[in-house]
Every structure is written in C-alpha cells, then in structure tokens.
Simulated assay, not measured.
Amino acid sequence: MANSPREGRLARRPDFTQLADMASEAVGGKSDSPSFKEHEYTEFGKWMDGWETRRKRTPGHDWCIIKLGIQGIIRGFDVDISYFMGDYAPRVSIQAANLEEDKQPEIPQRGIRIGVAATAEEFEAIAELKSSDWNYLVPMTELKPGKPASSHNYFPVNSQQRWSHVRLNIFPDGGIARLRVYGTGQKDWTATDPKEPFDLVTIAHGGACVGFSNAHFGHPNNVIGVGKARSVADGWEPARRRDRPPVLENDENGILLVLGCEWAVFRLAHPGVITQIEIDTTHFKGNSPDSCKLDGCILTTQEEEDMIKQKWELPGHKWKPLLPVTKLSANESHLFNSLTLELQDVITHTRLTISPDGGVSRLRLKGFPSSICLLRPCEKPKMRFFVKAGFRANL
C-alpha cells in the first residue's frame, strides 16, 4: 500500500532541470514551453496549451497516468502552470511505479479527445494497474502561481529506484500546462546480448554529463539524448571563443591553428569497451566545430566527485585516446572506429573536446559492457573485461 498523501514543500531552481525530461514526447529533449493564444476559444471554453479538466461536480479528484519514454531514476518534477492563472489545479501529488513490460494490461489509446471523461472500458483497464496504491514521490502539495508566462513548481525526488510510470493527481480539478519528469535512464544490463553492441553513453541507458567548459546555447546532456536531434536547440553549442586569432590558418592536416577549445565530460551508463564512435553535427550548418577528439578514463565515484570540484583538471596520464584530433564537417553524421579496438581498455568516463567551438547534435558510443564484453566475437576468441575490485560497488 502506498503512503498516504500529506502536505509537502516546494523547491526552487534545482540542478535536476538540466537532466532529460523522461516524459517528453522526444524523450531526452526538452519539452517546448507552453504558449498562449489570447483570442482563441473552443466549444468548451478558452483554448489552453496543456491539460485542463472540467469543473468537477462529482466526488473524487482528477488524475492521469503517464508511461515514461525513458525508464529509470527520477531526480525531480516540474509542474508548470504557466498561463493557467485563473484555473490551475490548487494541489497536486505524484505517484510512481515500475511495471514489467510483459505484465502490463492492454490499455486503449485515448488519443486527443476534448470535453469527455474516460469511458467505462478505459477505467476498467486502468484499474488493473492499481495506480492508487503506487508509491508517492510527491505528497499532496499546494501549487503556487508565479509569472503568467513562467510559473514553475519544482519538486526534488530522493529515490534510487527505477520507475516506468507516473500518476499525476490534481485536487480536485483544474489545469496543468506541462509535467516534466527529470532524471536518468537505467538499463537492465543482465538481459543484454553479449554479442550486441550498445550505446554506452546515451541518457536512456543511464549516461550523464558530469562536467563541461561552456553551454551558452545548449547543455551537453542534449547530445546523449534519445533519437535524432530535432534542431540546433536539441544539441550542445558553446559560445564563440574570444581568444580566436584575428586571421585563421590551417596546419598541414587542414586543422585550424587555434589555442582554445571546449569540452564536455560524460559518465558512461556502464563501464565498458567502446568500439564505434558517432559524432553528429546535423543542423549545425554554419556553426559546427572545426575538429574534435575523444578520450576515456576509468574513475571511481569518489574520484569523479573530486574531479567535479577541481573542474576536471585531470592529469594527462589518466586520459587515454579513443579518437585522435579529427576534422569534422557541417551538418553531417561522422562514424569512426575507436582506438580501444587496439587498446582493449575499459573506461567509465569520456571527454569530448571540440575546437575551437561550435555545435554537436549527438554523441553515440557503441560498445560492450565490461562484465559481458565480447570484442569482435566473429574474429577473435571470447574476451571479458572487468573493472578493478571495489569499483562496481561505488557505481
């Protein structure tokens, strides 16, 4: 049985909002902000960009169930009531569950239906989920309006459990513009095929950006998002460096001769051996990097925390090259073989360096989890890779 809802407290401007929105349609990208059309109405009343229920005239309260596009660890929620100034939901609570895919009942698709409640058949199917008994991640809490166009209510979550579904309860009725569920993915690595390479850095599997030099136009977490980037807004783009020389020149390999660079460090979803690298500059047509390189290393949890405090001033001998300095093209996906095919090194963290600046839409690092790795299974005998004793317990 779930804990009963109680009054809770709000938090403001938390760091978890830099993580992926696990409930967005793009899963891994940022949800579009709600909009307002001042003079637009429907047969049911004012047009609003969000979920608005009818004024309740029956016992109970309203709720909805959302299947997360990225299943994993939830770090926080944003209940956005922008533009719902006169009819936002007074209170909310949020519950969650981790449901096995093969044990979920067949639930009819609602689609877009305005002005009607769920059917008896839909209620009957949903009842099998027993969602009223799910765990409370946010107890019943009063929502507070802010600015009409930007009215966010943030709720941090302290849970290490994997979640697949959330239930948003509003008390008793009203409107919500957006529900954002921020967190990181978590994959069941024991069920993976040891001969099948996986993207070890994607946020859907649990990868995360843990440090960067500059994120003026887009956070590096975007580049490990799910699916193809939708636009330049769905990538990582630092500001133009101010230390570029007045007149640019190339070296003998066609690489620009500049002193500065930008970088981002990612923790892999699972320690492993990287075999293939994809660096995608799609949508960045006049603002892509000139070149890039990729390095990897192995760090414990404590070492990572120390590096974050030191702004990733990691000794050079720790980093091992995965991809040497390589020329990039605009608006193109680049595929490379990793140097770990020769080095056969397990890594836990990787650093993408771009020079001198510019935008990257996606970074994919395909390889094998260290505990079940079979490197080139068709060409070589089975090879297994293991992390130092004590490391896995720190993950």
Rank of each mutant, 00 (worst) to 15 (best):
Ser93Ile: 01
Ile114Gln: 13
Asp32Gln: 07
Pro34Met: 11
Arg242Met: 10
Phe386Leu: 11
Gln186Val: 10
Asn250Pro: 01
Ala215Val: 04
Asp280Val: 05
Lys67Phe: 10
Ala269Ile: 06
Arg241Phe: 07
Arg110Ser: 06
Pro139Tyr: 09
Leu365Lys: 04
Ala2Met: 08
Met48Phe: 04
Pro324Glu: 02
Glu278Trp: 08
Glu305Asp: 09
Val247Met: 05
Phe212Ala: 02
Arg178His: 09
Gly28Gln: 06
Pro220Ser: 09
Glu43Leu: 01
Lys285Tyr: 00
Ile65Asp: 12
Asp21Gln: 03
Asn214Tyr: 04
Lys147Glu: 08
Leu323Ser: 14
Glu252Gln: 10
Ile126His: 12
Pro321Gln: 05
Ser131Thr: 14
Asn221Ala: 13
Phe284Asp: 01
Pro377Gln: 05
Phe385Ala: 06
Asp49Ile: 04
Glu305Lys: 09
Lys30Gln: 13
Glu142Asp: 12
Lys388Gly: 11
Trp263Gln: 09
Val116Asn: 02
Leu352Met: 03
Trp319Phe: 06
Arg242Asp: 07
Ala125Phe: 12
Phe385Met: 08
Ile65His: 03
Gln104Ala: 12
Lys30His: 11
Ile74Gly: 02
Ala26Tyr: 04
Pro271Leu: 08
Leu68Met: 12
Asn3Met: 02
Lys320Cys: 14
Leu294Asn: 07
Cys261Met: 07
Pro238His: 08
Tyr83Arg: 07
Val232Trp: 06
Ile94Gln: 05
Ala204Cys: 01
Ile66Asn: 11
Thr119Ala: 09
Asn3Pro: 00
Glu262Gly: 06
Pro238Phe: 14
His219Cys: 13
Glu332Gly: 11
Asn158Val: 00
Thr353Trp: 03
Arg55Glu: 13
Arg267Val: 10
Glu379Trp: 15
Asp188Lys: 00
His334Arg: 04
